[in-house]
Design a protein around this nucleic acid. Structure first.
Length: 281
DNA sequence: TCATCACCTGGAGA
DNA sequence: ATCTCCAGGTGAT
């Protein structure tokens, strides 16, 4: 029987979904929007805002989902190997900005960028004599100057972040609306933002907008598909992941892995990263 | 429609 | 020490 209490925090937090979590002793501290989450064993999650939420997706029927995705042998193997790996449900704006920053960057670098954004534009809060900075609000980032964002080390992403924040503060991008609309519609909507292509949009949809059929395809995922499923996801010819090919692959993926493909992706990704001894942090 | 390439920056490896 | 290379991509030719 799987449940939220069986969450493996190390696996889950270091799975590339979130960037603003730190461990001190037996306690994890994580920034989620304007909230600080504190998690310690035995599994107990505390919110500084006393918000009742399901950050670790405890409302998912995990037993059913893990059983469903285990129909594929390799995913089944990964589920057995990493039973406590979970998807998270992050604050959408933070997720959106985080993955825009992830473009052509490394995990460590993404962490640094986001921490600087928080320190500069977020609010300071204290908890158990520790200091934290919340994630900036959209209007705060929309009002930031290009120079300020560059000084946070965002590089060419600075203008994307500012524009993206503007889109949210103006209401052009509405996360609550996107949660309620279809996967395809939400995907297209997100991709109208500069700096967001298929891969980043899929990350935002999967990690913060409850679209479990999202299956972000990046270098790693592409390698996994070619390595283990060469016949099913035949990438004949073209090397680069074009718009057309991405869409085609995603259709095949949902057809093959099912409507919880996002969970499948997380397990496959963990499996392959582990093989390559990439532990992150 | 597809392939190439530039893009800021910092960390890792030579 | 100094340099090169590259990182869970995207947008412009």
């Amino acid at each position: 029987m799987q449940s939220v209490e069986t969450t493996n925090l190390n696996f889950t937090i270091n799975s590339g979904q979130v960037f603003l979590w730190d461990k001190a002793g037996d306690t994890w501290y994580g920034i989620n929007g304007d909230d600080l989450l504190v998690v310690r064993e035995p599994f107990q999650i505390i919110s500084s805002k006393r918000q009742a939420h399901h950050f670790f997706r405890s409302d998912d029927n995990l037993t059913m989902i893990l059983s469903d995705i285990s129909k594929d042998n390799l995913v089944g193997k990964a589920v057995k190997q990493f039973p406590g790996l979970r998807l998270m449900r992050q604050d959408p704006f933070q997720c959106y900005i985080s993955f825009i920053c992830s473009s052509n960057s490394s995990i460590q670098n993404i962490r640094n960028m986001l921490k600087r954004l928080c320190a500069r534009f977020g609010n300071k809060i204290e908890y158990e004599d520790r200091q934290f900075f919340t994630f900036p609000r959209a209007d705060r980032l929309a009002d930031a100057t290009g120079k300020e964002l560059l000084s946070c080390g965002l590089g060419f992403r600075a203008k994307y972040v500012k524009d993206a924040a503007k889109s949210v503060s103006s209401g052009k991008i509405d996360f609550e609306y996107l949660k309620g609309t279809s996967y395809e519609s939400a995907l297209e909507n997100l991709k109208t933002v500069r700096g967001i292509g298929n891969k980043i949009a899929d990350c935002i949809l999967l990690f913060s907008l409850d679209k479990l059929e999202s299956f972000p395809i990046d270098r790693w995922t592409q390698r996994i598909l070619q390595k283990y499923y060469p016949k099913i996801f035949d990438s004949n010819g073209t090397k680069s992941l074009t718009e057309k090919k991405y869409t085609y692959l995603h259709e095949k993926i949902v057809e093959y892995f099912g409507s919880y493909a996002g969970y499948s992706q997380q397990f496959l990704f963990k499996l392959e990263r582990d093989l390559n001894k990439k532990n992150w942090l």
